[in-house]
């Protein structure tokens, strides 16, 4: 099974690999969520949802349901 952004814990980082859905919201891309970019989980609200991220220098929050569609590769 592929690792998705939703599985990362606070403080973990990864590289965005791909999207598992056809319609990734354009807005997310515009905010810097592009394959090859680095993403770090800064904070999560209770139940890990939503997630507060540093996406390639942009600070934003997305819901878990969206994070599930973002495949990543873990950086140690």
């Amino acid at each position: 099974m592929k690792l998705t952004l939703a599985q990362l814990r606070c403080g973990q980082r990864g590289i965005i690999k791909d999207f598992s859905t056809e319609d990734v919201p354009l807005k997310l891309l515009e905010m810097g969520c592009l394959p090859g970019n680095e993403v770090e989980v800064l904070q999560t609200a209770p139940f890990m949802d939503p997630m507060y991220l540093n996406m390639n220098g942009s600070h934003l929050a997305i819901r878990k349901e969206t994070a599930l569609h973002i495949e990543i590769e873990l950086i140690d």
């Binding site: 919201p25 997310l28 905010m31 942009s58 600070h59 934003l60 929050a61 997305i62 819901r63 969206t66």
Partner: peptide, 9 residues
Amino acid sequence: SYFVIEMPN
């Protein structure tokens, strides 16, 4: 839908 919000400084 989706949900994106910027967390400004």
